[in-house]
Write a protein that binds this DNA or RNA. Sequence first.
DNA 1: TTGAAATGTAAAATAAACTTTACTTTTAAA
DNA 2: TTTAAAAGTAAAGTTTATTTTACATTTCAA
Lengths: 64, 64
Amino acid sequence: MKNNLKLLRAEQSWTQADLATLLDVSRQTINAIEKGKFDPSLPLAFKLAKLFKKPIEEIFRDDA
Amino acid sequence: MKNNLKLLRAEQSWTQADLATLLDVSRQTINAIEKGKFDPSLPLAFKLAKLFKKPIEEIFRDDA
DNA sequence: TTGAAATGTAAAATAAACTTTACTTTTAAA
DNA sequence: TTTAAAAGTAAAGTTTATTTTACATTTCAA
């Protein structure tokens, strides 16, 4: 599972901490997802999609 | 988080066990998701979207 | 070039997803 | 109306997501 989070976040000039606050998760969670250490839960993926106004499939790519 | 799985599965005349096999998860996992006991992981949501040829947002609805 | 902000990382703990086993209840066809 | 398949459920265990704390490294503006 790959994602564009780093890019999308940069487009908004948000820090990892900013994004974490907006999503109500820890900064480490954002860092780990960006670095591909794990995938977000489905609810968190929905929050990201809502925040970035993009479908989940446009943010995450299934490489399985 | 709500979902149409029961309906989509019925459209294909698949049992919970059939669907579980197609997705390589346990039947109890399908049952629990259909009954709303928990949400699938993002990878499993992608598998479902692929199988049913529908975007994740069309299968799951964020009610948060 | 220093210093602060941002990012990366790690360990320990908790929560949520998922499995296995096993049993009960519902559904539907013979 | 019986009975087999399907669906529901529950407990115990494993794995994965997430938090908290804490520290190290990178980046970039003064």
